[in-house]
């Protein structure tokens, strides 16, 4: 069954975040649990970045579709879990670098000032509120770039 589980995992990893094309939901740390039974039934447990995230239904549909397409898969169930709570620590260093490079979005880790994805200088917060609940709007103190910062 290891083969099937790997195939299902790869299928889930092929689903991108609807607001970051090219960035996998697995790399953003949304996949919490994956159970594949001997009969090929699959249960996927996802956690949202924010509980009111409007993309939840869409991500769930995308995961269902991707997993359903895997050969040998039986019943598929995808659910949004209430715990654990998602934090930015679940985003790995490579993914942080990717969204910095591709989307000029920084990730707030720890208490220090988030770094500008363009030049690496510290940024200061311009507004607590950006286009999404999981992001604030900052400005780079060196190159003046307008930067969005993902936070938890």
């Amino acid at each position: 069954m290891i083969g099937l589980e790997l195939a299902v995992h790869a299928a889930i990893a092929s689903v991108d975040d609807p607001e970051y094309p090219g960035v996998s939901i697995v790399d953003l740390g949304l996949l919490e649990r994956l159970d594949v039974t001997d009969a090929g039934d699959v249960r996927v447990g996802l956690i949202p970045t924010f509980s009111g995230c409007p993309a939840l239904a869409m991500i769930r549909d995308d995961v269902l579709e991707a997993v359903d397409a895997v050969d040998g898969v039986g019943e598929v169930e995808v659910e949004w879990l209430r715990s654990p709570v998602w934090t930015v620590d679940r985003i790995g260093p490579e993914t942080r670098a990717l969204i910095g490079r591709e989307f000029t979005v920084a990730v707030r880790i720890g208490t220090g000032a988030p770094e500008c994805p363009r030049c690496g200088a510290p940024t200061t917060e311009e507004s607590m509120f950006g286009p999404s609940r999981c992001r604030s709007v900052n400005r780079c103190t060196a190159c003046a770039e307008t930067v969005e910062v993902m936070r938890s």
Partner: peptide, 27 residues
């Protein structure tokens, strides 16, 4: 409720985009 969530999200997106664009324009 499904549509309410999407309308809420779109509102925040548009206002957020305006915010970013006004910053870039003011610069």
């Amino acid at each position: 409720l499904r549509h309410k969530m999407s309308v809420l999200a779109k509102t925040q997106d548009e206002i957020g985009h305006g915010h970013l664009l006004y910053m870039v324009a003011a610069d």
